[in-house]
């Protein structure tokens, strides 16, 4: 078993173990970054979404060897409870999180979309989030959250 290095949330980390270990397991179990969640283990639900060199990937499908020498960003890179990022604040204001299990993955997909210059309109955001399943919200408040963050303003309480 060799050692490989990757940059996780701006920090160089070394992993000693099999190169085919799933990235999600390395993040959660070796690096104790448990913000990344496993929902299906087959790349369908998107709860494990992290950014690899800035692009969203399902970390349950990526062998850690594939991340060697590359940049990995997880939900822990965004903000802290005391100082939420603009996107996280959007989710708090617009009720974009209910049970919260899909939220880290949603945030990472939304973050990648906005950071890469993706459009801040309903259709573009829905497309960007279409690989992330949510069973609680019906998505509308999640889309509102992302749009609010992009536009830097709070959604009104009522849409009437």
């Amino acid at each position: 078993m060799g050692a490989l290095t990757l940059t996780v949330n701006g920090r160089r980390r070394t992993y000693r173990g099999a190169a085919f270990t799933r990235l999600i397991d390395v993040l959660r179990e070796d690096f104790r970054l448990t913000g990344t969640k496993e929902g299906c283990g087959e790349g369908e639900c998107g709860a494990c979404t992290v950014l690899l060199d800035g692009a969203p990937v399902n970390s349950c499908l990526i062998p850690v060897g594939q991340a060697a020498g590359r940049r990995v960003e997880t939900v822990e890179s965004l903000g802290s409870p005391e100082k939420l990022s603009k996107l996280q604040q959007g989710f708090l204001d617009c009720a974009g999180a209910q049970c919260g299990i899909c939220t880290p993955g949603m945030l990472m997909s939304a973050h990648a979309h906005l950071k890469s210059g993706g459009k801040a309109d309903d259709a573009s955001v829905r497309t960007a989030l279409s690989g992330n399943l949510c069973r609680c919200t019906g998505y509308q408040h999640i889309v509102d959250s992302v749009l609010a963050a992009a536009r830097g303003k709070k959604k009104k309480a009522s849409r009437k």
Binding site: R28, P81, Q88, L92, A95, A97, P104
Partner: peptide, 25 residues
């Protein structure tokens, strides 16, 4: 009747909320 912030929202939004499989036992 007001839309106050979700109590456990900040923890859920930052990956700090501890679900069962996140518990370090």
């Amino acid at each position: 009747g007001k839309n106050v912030s979700r109590r456990e929202g900040p923890e859920k939004l930052t990956g700090r909320a501890v679900y069962l499989d996140d518990l370090d036992i």
